[in-house]
Design a protein around this nucleic acid. Structure first.
Ligand SMILES: [Mn+2]
Ligand SMILES: [Mn+2]
Ligand SMILES: [Zn+2]
Ligand SMILES: [Zn+2]
Lengths: 135, 135
DNA sequence: GAATGCCATGCAACTCAATTGCAAAGGTTA
DNA sequence: TAACCTTTGCAATTGAGTTGCATGGCATTC
């Protein structure tokens, strides 16, 4: 069993043909990909099947989604041991020139003092600017 | 001249009828509003006119926009003296129960160490969870 | 005040990512 | 084999956002 299938099995997601293709694509690309990106990269696989795979992945914490403001949700593979809890969160960087979205795994999100009785569950932290290739 | 018109004049935006209505609505509500929210609150004003007002406001730093992941961009009036620079940025809080988006003006965004040669221009920082009324 | 020009507005149409309904295919279990 | 459940492909729909175009309103010039 290869690495891709192993990830799925560990996360209790049945490793079907489409799911393996989608996850392998995400692993290969290394950067966050939109549904359209994946659709273009897997021309023989139906969009809605890719879409449903991504939803399944997200529910089972195989990937996390990023709303980078580009109008298309992007998906990136969760790091080893990630449970998508607040302590697993990290910043994302969206390049306004090349539209690539990076996971900044090295920057943990600091403790944020919320107003009284506000409870944090998740976060979507996107920094926008120019990446190294574009600046 | 009332407060609403004053803001527009100061920001060099011609205070037309629709613009005054839209800005007054945002000021009244105090919380970030989507295009649809405003459309429902101003039933006699056309959606595209509201939309174009918001775009004009954003260009001229009358409001800032927030992508809270709800699928609808929200808009909030900029604080006095805001120039929408990185130092004016603040966190936003999106309540996953009541869908209200709050500006957390009291929490400045910390300096974030970006990878080499990455340049920050803007940011969209959204914390998701339950607000005081819903937790 | 008439003519001119510019910007704002309303309305309709369109774009496009996301989502859903449904039937066929595939796989699993009895 | 038969019954069942899940996944997949295809088509259609949704809904936020956006745009084209003609009209209206206002201001400036003649
Ligand atoms: Mn990430
Ligand atoms: Mn704000
Ligand atoms: Zn770039
Ligand atoms: Zn709430």
């Amino acid at each position: 069993m290869d690495k891709t299938e192993n990830i799925l099995v560990k996360k209790r997601v049945k490793p079907t043909a489409v799911r393996i293709l989608v996850l392998r694509y995400l692993l290969d690309k290394k950067k966050a990909q939109s549904l359209k990106d994946i659709e273009l990269g897997l021309p023989n696989t139906d969009r809605s099947s890719i879409f449903r795979s991504l939803k399944t992945f997200e529910e089972n914490k195989v990937v996390h989604s990023i709303e980078d403001g580009s109008g298309m949700t992007k998906y990136a593979v969760c790091a080893e041991g990630c449970n998508c809890n607040p302590e697993d969160l990290h910043y994302h960087f969206y390049c306004t020139n090349c539209s690539i979205t990076y996971c900044l795994f090295d920057n943990p999100i600091p403790q944020i003092k919320l107003p009284h009785n506000f409870r944090m569950q998740q976060a979507n932290m996107v920094i926008k600017g120019l990446c190294d290739k574009c600046s």
